[in-house]
Amino acid sequence: MAKKAKNPQDTLDTSSSYLLRKNAGASDWIFSITIWVLLFAVVAVVAYPLYFVVIASFSDPVDVGMGRTLLAPVGIYLEGYEEIFRYDRLWNAYGNTIFYTVAGTILHLLLTIPIAYTISRKNLMLNGFLATFLIITMFFNGGTIPLYMMLRAYGLLNTRWVLIVSGCVSVYNIIIARTFFANSIPAELMEAAEIDGATAMQTFVKIVLPISMTIIAVIGLYAAVGYWNAYKPGLMYIRNDELFPLQVILRELLLVNMNDMMVVGNGEVEQMRKAEQIKYGIIVVSTLPIMCLYPMLQRFFAKGVMIGAVKG
């Protein structure tokens, strides 16, 4: 490491080894320590609430209420999780959400990527018009009630379709993808393909798609997170128990347990306590799978978001 440090280029790249450098000066040390302290503070601020949720979900709600759970769970209490897992509607809903997320994400990609590619091509007639048209929909829409009436007219209410179709196109994602196609794919590549006799479809499928995996991963992740977290469509368009997505059931589990006793009547206080813990348990149960997805897509994610931001 020390040998390599002779090359100034390497010193810049191996920033994480600052503290290990043998010939580091005092100012280097102060600099490094400051950075480490600051970074640690930032991580603590971001990570502690998450950590707190996890320990609170295992602790006795009385102790949580009294503020005794700061660093480790106090008085292990699992009734909240028992309650969550006993709620049989939950598992059905979990399955539903996985289905909606997978099917929805595929549909989202099938629509978003071709649209973005199409409007990114400068030789497309009316491509400027199409892009403007799409952008207008970002600012103006019909509103909730007309949308509801339209979905009803199509016969989509109370079907699985409504949860997949709603949110299957996002103009925001299209713009990100368009920027990628316009800036990161050299026009020469497509010209070469054309000269070699590739049709427009062949160019897209065989040339463009294979080198666009980054943007596909990013849009896919955006879509998947969106579908996973969506509860509004389920709340508004679905009445059939069997079709509810996870988030609607979790919301329900939370709200029905929090009913104000004064309004509804005689209550068991144990339930109130449980409700407090259920709150934390629900966060863990519902975010765990999607959090596991993040590290795997992390390397695409950071890169892809940058691509969308750079203007050509």
Binding site: R152, M236, R239, D241, L255
Partner: peptide, 21 residues
């Protein structure tokens, strides 16, 4: 019977009344 869960009632009610369904 058509059931609306109590937590979703508020949203469903305004949709039902506004759309005339």
């Amino acid at each position: 019977w058509e059931y609306v869960t109590s937590d979703a009632w508020k949203e469903q009610k305004s949709l039902v009344l506004a759309s005339g369904d």
